[in-house]
């Protein structure tokens, strides 16, 4: 690694209709991340590069792209973690429509978010909350909404089920609401019918790409699945429903 002085990048440039992978070479600086490289390319060779970035500290979740095919935050991807002896390929997120260059249109996520009823506290509560009761919720609230999980989830990425599945990010938000000790809403039906939790077949890809290391599948989705299963598919209740169902 120490002798590496130049790094080659193949960067996606253009729109859906007209695009190319353009080659750029930059000097390697110790500690450099992919976003540093893209900003240097923008400053020196590609003034009109389309790129989203903001905090440069892995806190805002804006600078998403696919680095050698993996959805990543560019500001959190050190060059030293990549095989820099070969060109590094940088593309926009695959699961969303392209705007230009590395910028994709992620507005669908904001539409989904609007479908979730916000936190609705129980009436007359005294707001005494114990740390043990919110540890789980705080894990989910770490989400920086980079939507890497959304871009990785094969239900959205490969099968494009955006009309019937909210995706991991919003199951995490729902889990945070459901497990909040003071939330008063029964959200189980919403999780099953609107959020489409049954589409998830727990491959765990979302957890792998999460920059906040939220255990999305284990801690959010599986507990929500358990709730839907015990509400809708409990065998005893099903038998009960079968025998006592209303005659048409």
């Amino acid at each position: 690694m120490a002798e590496q002085t130049k790094v080659k990048f193949l960067v996606f440039r253009g729109t859906e209709e007209d695009n190319t992978l353009k080659e750029y070479t930059i000097d390697f600086v110790e500690g450099m991340v992919v976003l540093d490289a893209m900003l240097e390319i923008q400053a020196k060779y590609a003034s009109d590069l389309g790129i989203r970035c903001n905090c440069k500290a892995a806190k805002c979740g804006s600078c998403t792209a696919e680095v050698n095919g993996m959805p990543r935050l560019m500001c959190k991807t050190r060059l030293s973690s990549l095989p820099v002896d070969k060109p590094i390929v940088i593309r926009p997120l695959k699961a969303f429509p392209l705007i230009k260059d590395l910028v994709s249109d992620i507005s669908w996520n904001y539409e989904v978010n609007r479908k979730i009823t916000p936190f609705t506290p129980k009436e007359d509560c005294d707001w005494r909350i114990y740390q043990d009761d919110v540890d789980r919720v705080q894990e989910f609230r770490k989400c920086i909404e980079c939507f890497l999980c959304q871009s990785t989830c094969h239900v959205l990425r490969t099968h494009d089920k955006k009309d019937s599945y909210f995706g991991p990010r919003f199951l995490v938000r729902l889990a945070g609401l459901i497990m909040h000790p003071l939330d008063s809403i029964d959200r189980t039906e919403h999780v099953k019918e609107q959020a489409g939790i049954e589409y998830c077949n727990i491959t765990g890809c979302c957890s792998e790409v999460c920059p906040e290391k939220i255990k999305i599948t284990d801690n959010a989705i599986i507990p929500l699945k358990e709730r839907t299963v015990s509400r809708y598919y409990d065998p005893l209740i099903s038998i009960f429903r079968y025998f006592f169902r209303k005659k048409k």
Partner: peptide
């Protein structure tokens, strides 16, 4: 500047 008005960082 290069390019057009579409998402042009420069």
């Amino acid at each position: 500047l290069e390019g057009n008005l579409q998402y042009n960082f420069g």
